[in-house]
Design a protein around this nucleic acid. Sequence first.
DNA 1: GGAAATGGGACTGGTTTGGTCCTATTTAAG
DNA 2: CTTAAATAGGACCAAACCAGTCCCATTTCC
Lengths: 148, 148
Amino acid sequence: MLRLSRLTDYAVVVLARMGEEATALQSAPGLAHRTGLPEPTVAKVLKTLAQAGVVEGLRGARGGYRLSKPLPEIKLTEVIVAFDGPIALTACVDGGSGLCESEHLCPVRGRWDPVNTAIRDALEKISVAELAGHALSPAEADFRLAAE
Amino acid sequence: MLRLSRLTDYAVVVLARMGEEATALQSAPGLAHRTGLPEPTVAKVLKTLAQAGVVEGLRGARGGYRLSKPLPEIKLTEVIVAFDGPIALTACVDGGSGLCESEHLCPVRGRWDPVNTAIRDALEKISVAELAGHALSPAEADFRLAAE
DNA sequence: GGAAATGGGACTGGTTTGGTCCTATTTAAG
DNA sequence: CTTAAATAGGACCAAACCAGTCCCATTTCC
């Protein structure tokens, strides 16, 4: 279905929430509570985002996570790549050869590259802030907390 | 990995091969042999393509398939949609509501739409012919047959 | 030293997908 | 009129993939 992993979706939610107070240090449990997402999942998401350098993790008691750059500067591709791997339609990844067993049989080898770059370009222009949009309004936040 | 189904890949291969003789009626077994792909798989691919209206299937002995329009006019999106379903990143499909259990909890609901349209636009501009490219050259065809 | 947090994996249940096969239906040829 | 060859449409099963959970090591503040 050309779908990206659900974790990517969660990541955007979490990042949007972090963007409300970009400078503050926020803990995984805290973010879990405020987003309404299960705590272990949020923890996993943040760990991955930290590895990707999208957020910065500080250890120890009173530790937490912080955006490593403002929300509008975080490109959607960064998040997608972190969870779904390199953006490449089809199993034969990019120029990597040797993996495909029937390499010499495959007449379209490498031909997907223009498609991939087209998609990459399209996603490159979108920032996480654009996906967050009005979802950050306090009104919705209250609504969501009340629903618990 | 943001990958599309392998059948989509096969479909492009088969279509490229059909494009060589766009007017001729070609049988599934014949195409299987000429592409080097397993026959049942090719059959399945062609059935799906026929349902999508990309190819036209004629029944009976001496039946077969034929492109319903020239290769350059077949948009890549048509093929992708046929196998992978509507192009929509994320599980929450488009505007369809009611499916997501925590709908009222999800702060990014619907916000993926701009992303989806961006991708759709990018793919809309690419035809199957562009993916086929030079793969149709007789030289490669011979090479492939020789490898069997 | 203890509590609270991140960091990094390991493991597992459920879902999805590929690939195969079987059975109807259609149509040309003998 | 019978037979063969092809499409049409599903059913089915094994394998791969993913999400979600949990566990343990490490770090840091009180």
